[in-house]
């Protein structure tokens, strides 16, 4: 009984601490001095370096999704709608969410492990002593880089995914590049694209803040570092789905569908 209440207590403690950490980002992160160089370096690490992975998974996803959807569409006699169906699925949901999950797997864990080991080996304290605010230098730059880079990755990932879908369509039948994309673009509206695009900022923020939070609060020892990396991925993945759910509800309420 006590363990249950203790666990519930721990859950809310964790939620509170994470929220305070995020609040810190907004109160501290917006004040000078701005770590532009480090931000660019992190954008490179987090964004550019993740692109091959996101591109590859996106391509395969588009291809496979198309091949999986085709048989049922054929049996309904609407094979010609395959690009539209795949296009909507990728742009609205699968593209952003899968990219974010891949991103969480790669980035949240690496941030969690990096900051965790920096914490454990007192590098963070060393920065603090050296007159560089570690929250600004390490956390704000990483969170901002995640928030800005995930949308870029998602956009490119979607594009590559759609290209994969185009190839998927062409495996069994023939459609021109032009027709394929005209069909997709015609079926898309701002209501499809905008919420999907905007939510990726929140996904990126969640991945960054959770990774940093877990790393920053890593307990001593290599085990602690492993745990921070692992729990960063788990928590940020869950958060991605929660945010996704909220965004769907919100766009519904706002009538953006």
């Amino acid at each position: 009984m006590t363990t249950l209440t203790a666990r519930i207590r721990a859950f809310f403690d964790e939620t509170g601490n994470l929220s305070r950490f995020a609040g810190h980002f907004f109160s501290l992160g917006i004040k000078p001095r701005y770590e532009f160089r480090e931000l660019l370096a992190q954008c490179y690490q987090i964004g550019y370096k993740s692109f091959p992975l996101v591109g590859l998974t996106g391509f395969i996803m588009g291809l496979v999704l198309t091949m999986q959807l085709r048989p049922s569409l054929v049996s309904y006699g609407v094979e010609s709608q395959l690009p539209v169906m795949v296009g909507i699925a990728i742009v609205r949901e699968i593209g952003p969410v899968i990219t974010a999950l891949i991103f969480a797997g790669k980035i949240a864990s690496s941030i969690g492990a990096e900051l965790g080991s920096m914490k454990v080996t007192e590098q963070i304290d060393a920065m603090d002593v050296s007159g560089t605010n570690p929250f600004k230098y390490l956390v704000a730059t990483r969170v901002l880089a995640c928030t800005l880079m995930l949308p870029m990755l998602t956009l490119l990932g979607d594009a590559i995914s759609l290209f994969g879908a185009y190839i998927g369509v062409n495996i069994r039948s023939v459609t021109s590049f032009n027709l394929f994309f005209t069909q997709i673009y015609q079926s898309l509206s701002f209501g499809d694209v905008l919420p999907a695009f905007i939510k990726t900022f929140f996904f990126g923020f969640a991945v960054g803040i959770v990774g940093c939070y877990k790393g920053f609060n890593s307990s001593k020892g290599t085990r602690g570092v492993g745990i921070s990396a692992n729990s960063a991925v788990v928590l940020s993945s869950v958060l991605i789905f929660v945010i996704d759910l909220l965004v769907v509800q919100l766009t519904d309420v706002l009538g953006l569908n």
């Binding site: 660019l40 954008c43 490179y44 692109f51 870029m152 990755l153």
Partner: peptide, 12 residues
């Protein structure tokens, strides 16, 4: 690296 990053962002 910054150039690469720039290309990446411009593509997005």
């Amino acid at each position: 690296n910054n150039t690469k990053l720039g290309i990446f962002v411009m593509a997005g």
